[in-house]
Design a binder for these strands. Structure first.
Length: 433
DNA sequence: TCTGGGGTCCTAGGACCC
DNA sequence: TCTGGGGTCCTAGGACCC
């Protein structure tokens, strides 16, 4: 096994008698909405992006009537009216909490769980004779369904990439489980998988591969290593190797800390004044700084970007971008806001209608190894923890910096938001008995 | 009228150093 | 005129993921 293509050469375990499972919640956001509103069962459901702009999740019924992923809402309004589709603005408080419940169940049942995204987790477990994994998958699926109300699909494979493929297959079967380790003729199965359905092969790489006659997963798995290395770099070679059943991607059981924290949003209406832009940027900095502190990190770099609507044809387009290196790494909202809004006047162009702004914190370090500066006095160390505690107990933005604005008229649209059933007392569902 | 948000990894190329 | 070799660090850009 050439260690050069293994992502974690030092951590490799020689144990070949282990398999990977991918547990993936079906149509996650749409399913979360359904759990608390049984009237939605059988009805098409879509969930919209932050500004009610595009469709980012669809129930099976919504897929069936032809609503595409990422479609702008205004382009599928006709379908939505015709089929009485239920529409929801995204409600990340709800989805985050439901995700946490699913992951907690997995962690209780399995020692090796890698939370891969909000709706997916890898599990590593001992290989088993044909039929046993399938049955275990069924049990796991039923457990999650009965404890959270969420439907999941489970795929088993000897590598993460194969488990991903198995999961895709599982979604098409009524049982919701697919065990590729039990398949006697893997290449024949791989020959049925188009190359762009493989995890790690996106649109661009798929086109590149097809040009060279590589159209299925089997083709890719049988392509010469050095050729692949040149064409797709080491990541593509890893994918091909994984398709052959040789693991290159190990379980990542320890949470690695973020390298960047980004907060950006589209505005609900065009922003044309520096005052409003300042409010928005200060608000985004506040959100990012809270996240920074939750993860016990400090940021040494702050980047700001603002942009007008790229789709508007008859308006001047402007995209501005500034990188600020702070004198000392910090997690203090006030310091970060000050640095951010200082450079806004030179970034802002009067006459432009801004559609979106964002900030990025980078060069993150652990709070425990704070590097202080000789030339500045550190801010009051008790202020931010006190502020966080108050906002946690009494609700978001109970206390905030004045510069972030009170009306926030630029805030994005959320016309179809469901209640935060599981994270806000006042939103608890009521049962009539 | 209306088009999301938040991440990661890899490579090439330039600057700079010894 | 000829003009090395090896290393690091940084950044931009391209690709992917959910």
């Amino acid at each position: 096994m050439p260690s050069i293509i293994s992502k974690h050469p030092g951590q490799r375990t020689k144990d070949r008698n282990m398999v990977f499972a991918l547990v993936d919640c079906n149509n996650f956001y749409a399913s979360c909405e359904r759990v608390f509103d049984p009237k939605l069962i059988g009805r098409p459901v879509v969930v919209l992006s932050n500004n009610d702009g595009c469709v980012i999740a669809r129930s099976a019924e919504a897929k069936a009537i032809g609503i595409g992923m990422g479609t702008p809402l205004f382009k599928c309004m006709a379908l939505i009216r015709k089929h009485r589709v239920a529409i929801f603005s995204s409600n990340y408080a709800l989805y985050g909490d439901m995700s946490h419940r699913v992951m907690t169940i997995l962690n209780l049942l399995e020692p090796e769980v890698e939370v891969y995204s909000i709706d997916e987790a890898f599990i590593r477990l001992p290989a088993s004779r044909p039929g046993r994994l399938e049955a275990y998958g069924q049990t796991l699926r039923e457990t999650i369904r009965s404890r959270t109300g969420l439907p999941v699909s489970i795929g088993f494979g000897t590598t993460k990439t194969l488990a991903k493929l198995a999961n895709r297959q599982a979604k098409k079967t009524p049982t919701g489980v697919c065990d590729l380790t039990a398949i006697s003729d893997l290449p024949t199965f791989l020959a049925t998988i188009p190359v762009d359905n493989i995890w790690g092969i996106g649109r661009r790489l798929a086109a590149k591969l097809r040009l060279r006659g590589i159209t299925t997963a089997r083709d890719l798995s049988q392509t010469d290593d050095s050729f692949l290395r040149r064409l797709l770099t080491v990541t593509g070679l890893r994918t091909a190797t994984e398709l052959r059943g040789i693991p290159c991607l190990e379980m990542e059981l320890v949470l690695t800390r973020n390298q960047t924290i980004v907060t950006s949003r589209s505005f609900g209406h065009p922003v044309t004044t520096l005052t409003e832009l300042t409010e928005a940027v200060a608000t985004y900095v506040t959100m990012a700084a809270e996240k920074l502190r939750r993860q016990h990190l400090l940021a040494a770099c702050l980047q700001i970007f603002i942009t007008t609507n790229p789709f508007a044809e008859h308006q001047p387009y402007h995209a501005g971008n500034r990188l600020i290196r702070l004198t000392a790494p910090t997690d203090h909202t006030g310091e970060l806001i000050k640095a951010a809004i200082r450079c806004l006047p030179e970034l802002f162009q009067p006459g432009c209608s801004y559609k979106k702004a964002g900030i990025m914190l980078s060069d993150l370090t652990d709070r425990s190894c704070r590097q202080t500066s000789l030339f500045t006095t550190p801010p009051n160390a008790r202020l931010m923890p006190a502020l966080d505690q108050i906002n946690r107990r009494l609700g978001q933005n109970t206390i905030q910096y004045g510069v972030a604005g009170l009306d926030k008229e630029w805030r994005n649209r959320r016309l179809h938001q469901s209640p935060s059933y599981t994270t806000r007392w006042s939103d608890l569902p009521r049962a009539m008995a």
